[in-house]
Amino acid sequence: MTADTPTRRSGDTVANAAGSTDATGSGAVTGAATGDATAVGRGPNGLGDRLAVGAVDASTILTHLSLLAVIALMASPLVLAAVMSTQTVPQVYDVSYLWIGDAGVSKYAEVLTDYGLWRYMLNSFVMSVIVVVGKLALSLLAAMALVYYEFPYKNAVFFLVLFTLMFPVPVRIVPLFELMVDLGWSNTVLALTGPYLASATAVFLLRQHFQSIPTSVVETARLDGVGPLTFLVRVLIPMSRGMLTGLAVIEFIYAWNQYLWPLIVISDQSKQVVQVGMKYLQAVGTAGQTDWGLIMAGAMLTLLPPLAVLVAFRRPLLDTLGVK
């Protein structure tokens, strides 16, 4: 009766949209008479339906071809980089040679061990996991307070959290760096992760998700006298699994890709993250020739973890971002 207005509102939107359909629907009869045969198919525009009525039309083929072309274009730098990562230095410098090279995967082994990429990757991994877990934990607690508790200055607190979106690292970089120095955190994982632990995005999305949980479910818990901790662990977290996974993917990719802040706050190379590690690799080479194959191998390895996470968890990620 009182709290389920968000769902109602979205229902209204649908209703409005349906209303406008009616307006355009008036010309439907004539349209159908002249329209192509595919419009008679049962599904929206499935290939099966089109096949069923005879042929795949030209526009469908065009769509697929365009899509394949764009995808190939988008993937080409990566494919080239992957191919080059197998080439020896002379092969790389032979610009016309665009095939798998003689180095095989040796550059990968070399960059991991001889150039310490495994150490940077480990550092990145530790940083990312701490940031993801910390962000989700802190945001879960904060969102729970914002949705299920009554307390003074609630809106002010929410605004305070949301407003931090306006302060990306560059806006506060000098004092933040000084603060790390004052705290004695330079070159530690604390400095790498601390500033990232609070998340306006995660609090916002979780708050929205909690509000979409039917009031009656919450009221059932209330009638049963379910305590806050039990409610969090047994009800909220299980009911937010998809959202939490999606957020974890977003935050993992975000944390893994950080460059500027680690560059500033970590000067001890052995504690550096892999993005900045890319920069260290730049100078690698012998006799004035850069070993680009090795650098590309490093780039591939650096891309691998976030890419794997994205591919593995694309469904919860897309759900979280609202792709149906």
Binding site: T220, D224, V226, T230, R234, V235
Partner: peptide, 25 residues
Amino acid sequence: MVFQSYALYPHMTARENMTFGASTA
């Protein structure tokens, strides 16, 4: 209370739904 929407916990089995409230009440 029994709600119009039933308000069952979607992640729990029928049995868990029936016992959860009573054992935490």
